[in-house]
Write a protein that binds this DNA or RNA. Structure first.
Lengths: 255, 255
DNA sequence: TTGCTCAACTTGTAGGGACAAGCTGATGGA
DNA sequence: TCCATCAGCTTGTCCCTACAAGTTGAGCAA
């Protein structure tokens, strides 16, 4: 007998077969009862093994349908160029980027005024609980949930740029709107983290077990101080972030 | 009766109690049999609920000990400054960074010559399977596994910088060594991705279920072409990446 | 053809039991 | 005092059963 527990043997065998292409992305695995017969194990044991692969993000299951091998088509976001500092574009950067990639963007939108949560306050360098404006949106690519984005603006900024606190989109793009009101961003500070989604996030992004989220926190600075903090929550399986540092001058056009 | 299945109710109740501090990081949860009594559910049902929290990365379990609330003390790595392009430092950037953070670095090391895997070849812009040098290391912080790092150098570079292919550390740091041999890096292209660890990665980094890895692929360019590609695999729960874009001039010293 | 129902599949949920294996503290004996 | 042993706790593995719930396609009726 092997030393590995039986449910791990099941998972390892299936993982190997997925890796070497016996079950390509999109393919359906044999049913639990078939696997149960093949491995001479109870249905529960097979389920434990399959569950391992689900939490590894390799397969997903749905009631009535069976287990399916996950496929990934990743979207690469060039964070260095995402918002051009020198020439703020018209429209928002996300729609532009997605359209340029030949895919269809769609977003829903919400504006709130609320006290700044502790973490946000730290980024914006204001008191925790100070007044802040939250502009929140859900973003889809080809109708697949892609990311949620929450941008916080410090309360003092609203006096200079009142439309921030008004509901509804800012057609020319907030970066451009701010620039037109004398508030230009001269730099960003980005932080990237990953973790498993909360149930709320899993619901919004329609991800099951085994898919982590990628958290992108971008704090924009004007000449003097932070003027906004954007937290974007991506599906980790569909998104990658790119940064260029130093003088690359288009050496990566093909990527 | 609630519409939520019982094992989810168990998970939700415990998650709430963890979130509001009833079980602080490091605390032990009641045993399965206690929870089983409290929720009037079988041990199997309680285990399903606990397993959800494990895959969310909220708690971890060990045989004989029970379930423990995970704690996170994150290490932030400033990728924009990690390797200074203008003034290559002595020694490797990792040891310097960790020591500066008041923590103790430790690493093991390995050098290999091998055909470049497909993905690496694409980054290095060489033929897939072309000769490449792999310098691989495991890194620890305060004896906790922190990351694994694989750096690939294209074969043609070894003629100019033969020590790359020799086993053993390069004391002055490879960036400095390359610079001293007329190969200076003028820029980087970074890609950041996340996913669940393979069983191999989970073993090396000593992470259990519910902790994603953060993959950092950095391709370094000399004047002409890519000269190295470094893939770093971090524990996602302990690491964050920072980037500075534009003119921030030390506005984030405190972070 | 079209549309409905239903049987036969799938996984999901919930319970039961049994024993293995890891950890800890109490209880000894040396 | 020190150390080995062991009882009694913990979770890990594996089996069984039963029924609920989602999906699909065959087949019948209009």
């Amino acid at each position: 007998m092997n030393k590995q527990p039986k449910y791990r043997q099941v998972a390892d065998a299936l993982r190997r077969e997925i890796d070497n292409g016996a079950y390509p992305p999109g393919a359906r695995l044999p049913s639990e009862s078939e696997l149960s017969a093949r491995f001479a194990a109870s249905r529960n044991t097979v389920r434990s093994g399959l569950n391992l692969l689900v939490t590894e993000g390799l397969i997903s299951s749905s009631q009535g349908l069976g287990y399916e091998v996950r496929s990934h088509e990743v979207f690469k976001l060039n964070a260095s160029r995402f918002e051009n500092l020198s020439f703020p574009q018209n429209g928002d950067a996300y729609s532009t980027d997605v359209t340029n990639a030949g895919r269809r963007p769609h977003q829903t939108f919400r504006v709130e005024m609320l006290p700044a949560p502790e973490e946000i306050a730290a980024w914006l360098k204001v008191e925790a609980g100070a007044k802040a404006v939250l502009r929140f949106c859900h973003r889809y690519v080809d109708d697949v949930p892609w990311s949620t984005q929450a941008t916080y603006y410090p309360g003092w900024l609203v006096e200079q740029a009142p439309r921030l606190a008004e509901p509804g989109d800012i057609a020319e793009g907030t970066t451009r709107y701010l620039a037109d009101h004398g508030i230009s961003q001269i730099g960003y500070f980005d932080e990237i983290a990953t973790r498993m989604p909360t149930p709320e996030e899993a619901r919004l992004l329609e991800i099951g077990a085994g898919v982590p989220v990628l958290l992108w926190t971008r704090t924009g600075y004007s000449d003097e101080k932070p003027i906004r903090c954007t937290i974007t929550t991506f599906r980790g399986d569909l998104n990658r972030m790119n940064y260029e540092i130093g003088d690359l001058a288009g050496r990566n056009e093909d990527l």
